[in-house]
């Protein structure tokens, strides 16, 4: 096991990185829950009064919409976390700068 990057580890745990990353995580999990269990199961009957194309919205969310949202959530996750890494200097790019 390598313990090379201990210095970085220590300032990371107390810093804002962890907080910000958890915030991203929880907001995305909330959306995840809302589009699948919320729209697709719990509020489905209420949503069915609206339509998308000719399909009832609740039904569509359960069989199609939620999956589309899932893909968007993962893209958002990759982008937001990438930005956060850069801000706190954990990305590969900023590391190269350090070594120079």
């Amino acid at each position: 096991m390598n313990d090379l990057d201990t210095s970085q580890d220590n300032n990371e745990t107390s810093g804002g990185y962890r907080k910000s990353s958890l915030r991203i995580l929880f907001s995305l999990l909330f959306i995840w829950f809302f589009v699948s269990f919320g729209c697709g199961v719990l509020f489905r009957d209420w949503l069915d009064q609206y339509t998308i194309g000719t399909a009832p919205l609740g039904f569509w969310m359960a069989q199609q919409g939620s999956i589309i949202c899932f893909v968007l959530i993962l893209i958002a996750y990759a982008v937001l976390m990438g930005k956060l890494d850069e801000k706190y200097g954990y990305s590969e790019k900023s590391k190269q700068k350090e070594t120079k």
Binding site: L29, Q63, S66, I67, F70
Partner: peptide, 13 residues
């Protein structure tokens, strides 16, 4: 549909 794809979201994040 939701179970298998939604689980993947959990797995990733």
């Amino acid at each position: 549909l939701m179970g298998w794809t939604g689980g993947f979201v959990l797995l990733t994040i």
